[in-house]
Design a protein around this nucleic acid. Structure first.
Lengths: 383, 383
DNA sequence: TCTACTTACGAAGGAGCGCTTCATTAGTAG
DNA sequence: CTACTAATGAAGCGCTCCTTCGTAAGTAGA
């Protein structure tokens, strides 16, 4: 919209090349005729565009599909393998990474355990190992890396520093963007992990197709991610979604209802306490059920606030406790039904632990798309 | 982005024509050379484009500006007067309307008083009178109308029905979109009034330039409007911003602190009570100050919720009570400072009573822009 | 009033891109 | 082996934009 550049003839060719790439990315290999039909170009013109894209390395020919009437048509496909994207999830206990092709198709995944109080260097080394592992698994080299997108716990600054992280003490104050740019000689993107999880759910998970989504990370720590108009909403200072900080929203202490439930046996590890309560509730234990009730009471307040503010199409329940979504969903729906003007769909996450890395990859792919399709620069040759 | 249409040569011309129109709309009359420079086209090509736009009626020549060196250059301007937009604000006590040219420049304004409990027909007639008045004042006819954008109190449905209106009882359940389409043979848009006020503040008022804005309508009724990424956020069911419905946000009864303050003299009209308290607070009356304190305490809770959820660049205080913004801003800022992770700017509305009509006009202009600049259809001749 | 200077205008020639058309080629079906 | 189908490749056309250059219409100064 802000673009005030008029066009040259070459601009038209560029437009058509991009349209062709988009068509190929949307559907598998296509023949020239199919491409021409989809892009609205004539076949001869389409041929010329395709030749150019082949020469630049963006597109390649695949063997014609046999068994058709008439002369077999050439087929082209987008060379999604000519680069790769990496998504990283930096959590308290694990660093996860996944590698995908340029279409976001996942090719390799790794996980590196880290202690929450591990020193900075150790965690950064784990990131390095996780990414290297993905590259090795998929037979790629660092030179193939186009974009590394990282999701991390904590409050970020717009520039990619960690303003504050409760889960990873040494993280607070770190200029993560700078560190990562030292490590990876490619585009580096940083986002909050809940926001990336939200994106993943909106693209491949429970909220597929929805353009306005509220993602709730329910676990020992509460977090949220907002998708607005199909995009991650980060806010002016990259601090959107932090309603957990508002006492009246009753989120901050909500998990304590589950963690501190009196039926949890002495000596249970703190990270397993809530799971114990939720499991007991599933079995119908009255004390556990009461605890879950109090938990959902609190959870519903902050959730209703977000729903009333945003009127999203869907609310997705993710995070550790969402493994017990069957216990939580019904009472949450019931409370929201009473509190909200328009009741959104409420669903459980379908992506599980890989949620954040997938969101990171989607985030990287989005960024790539916007660079490709909104830039005025002509297409550059690929290696 | 979703557009998969490749381009013809004519598409290139269309692109360049639109670019030229946009350049002309952005800056006043321009010479051919200036236009060529801005659009990146060569002068001869620009000439051709300009000729075509003149022929179609989108652009006209203005007399060359004298007193320059060299041969005086032709100057062109966008014919913003070749159509007009109307914005309407349907409130409880008044129907306001404003008429603008296609650039959103306001040419006429009218106001029609209506009683809150007036029958439906009477209010619709007032709308008609308000719009006709604008047309008459500006010497236009209904045929010049391109778009009518209407802001109204109440909760809307996405289709333009009134789901519920507390301020205008007969409004509830009305298919306003259908009624208005009967009345006006042009594009009709309907939005919530607070959202349009928010848009106006973001475009011409206190929040100019900000892309993420929370607008608070503080008055006898509370309301909000959200601007996200520069656009009105309406939500999936057109019910965004209704946090007033959440008891924990403490908005619903907040005005009562001011209305019901004990220093308000017996017999004061209900609509003047809060103003009395606020005025007394400005004069330092301790009881009034305490009431204002309690009011802002409540106001800050819901506001903090929205700020924490969205992390906007700015919060704008509008509505009836914002006339006393000097009394409210400082304590509100103080509370938000404590509650929020990142403190947004907090400002008072600068547009006053015409806020909603202006927002309606901006809304109409946005709609027109998106129709113009994203459509694939070639430019049509203008009468 | 005349000349020099500045700036815009307009016509001519050229290059790039996409379109249509049509003969040719490479398969399958009987 | 022939008929049919569908893709290919080359030729010719038209449109849009570009560059270049001579001309026109003003101002500034002698």
């Amino acid at each position: 919209m802000t673009n005030l550049r008029g066009g040259d003839l070459s601009r038209l060719r560029q437009l058509n090349s991009l349209t062709a790439i988009r068509a190929l990315r949307g559907a598998g290999p296509l023949t020239l005729s199919a491409l021409a039909e989809r892009t609205g170009l004539s076949r001869p013109s389409m041929k010329e565009v395709a030749d150019e894209l082949m020469e630049l390395g963006w597109v390649e020919e695949v063997p014609p599909s046999p068994g058709t009437m008439g002369r077999p048509a050439r087929r082209y496909r987008f060379r999604a393998d000519s680069g790769c994207l990496v998504g990283v999830d930096i959590g308290g206990h694990n660093v996860r990474a996944a590698l995908s092709d340029l279409d976001g198709e996942i090719l390799a995944e790794t996980r590196q355990p880290v202690l929450p109080d591990a020193p900075l260097e150790e965690r950064l080394a784990a990131i390095d190992r996780a990414v290297s592992g993905c590259l090795a698994l998929s037979g790629r080299s660092a030179a193939d890396l186009w974009t590394v997108a990282v999701g991390t716990t904590g409050v970020l600054t717009p520039e990619g520093r960690i303003a504050f992280s409760a889960a990873i003490p040494v993280w607070t104050g770190l200029d993560l963007a700078a560190k990562l740019r030292e490590m990876f000689p490619c585009q580096v993107l940083i986002e909050n992990d809940s926001r990336l999880a939200a994106l993943a759910e909106a693209r491949r998970g429970a909220a597929q197709g929805a353009r306005d989504v509220v993602f709730l990370h329910v676990g020992r720590r509460m977090g949220t991610g907002l998708i607005i108009d199909g995009k991650v909403h980060r806010g002016f200072g990259a601090a959107a979604g932090e309603i957990v900080m508002l006492p009246e929203a009753r989120w901050y202490d909500a998990p304590e209802h589950l963690n501190g439930c009196e039926i949890v046996p002495e000596g249970t590890a703190p990270e397993d306490a809530a799971g114990y309560t939720l499991a007991a509730a599933r079995d119908g234990h009255p004390v556990a059920l009461a605890a879950v009730d109090r938990y959902v009471d609190d959870l519903a307040v902050g959730t209703a606030a977000m729903v009333l503010v945003l009127d999203p199409q869907m609310v997705v329940l993710g995070g550790g406790f969402s493994r017990s979504a069957d216990v939580l969903l019904a009472p949450l729906r019931e409370r929201l039904e009473r509190a909200c003007i328009r009741m959104p769909e409420v669903r459980a996450s379908t992506l599980g632990d890989e949620c954040v890395v997938m969101g990171a990859i989607d985030y990287a792919a989005d960024h790539l798309d916007s660079e490709l399709f909104t830039s005025d620069a002509p297409l550059t040759p690929l290696r």
